[in-house]
């Protein structure tokens, strides 16, 4: 009954994801350590790179890319909820 065709992610794709994650990790560390005096790693840059890595992990390692659309919608709702919490907290603190 449940034997729908399941997408099998190839070893090559997993290795590619790994390579991408390693490159992004090296990027953040390099910006933080080597160029500490020239370029500072701001919260925004760090979060942008971290989020890129998170999307790579979620889409390939966690198979989100190949799942039904409902999973992406659910994750989107949770993310919206979290961004809401964040924004409300920021608004609260910045208007005190």
């Amino acid at each position: 009954m449940s034997e729908e065709k399941q997408h099998i992610v190839s070893y090559k794709e997993h290795f590619g994801t790994w390579a991408g994650l390693i490159i992004l990790t090296i990027m953040t560390v390099a910006v933080s350590v080597a160029n500490a005096s020239l370029l500072t790693l701001t919260v925004v840059t760090a979060l942008t790179i971290a989020t890129t890595k998170a999307i790579l992990v979620a889409y390939w390692y966690m198979h989100l890319k190949f799942e039904k659309k409902i999973y992406r919608i659910m994750l989107g709702i949770v993310m919206l909820l979290f961004v809401n919490f964040m924004l409300l907290t920021i608004i609260d603190y910045s208007t005190r």
Partner: peptide
């Protein structure tokens, strides 16, 4: 999935605590 989530959390913990100078 659980293991990847643990990885995901570390992806955010690492820059926030170690890297932002």
């Amino acid at each position: 999935l659980y293991w990847h989530l643990v990885d995901l959390i570390w992806i955010y913990l690492f820059p926030l605590f170690y890297l932002i100078h």
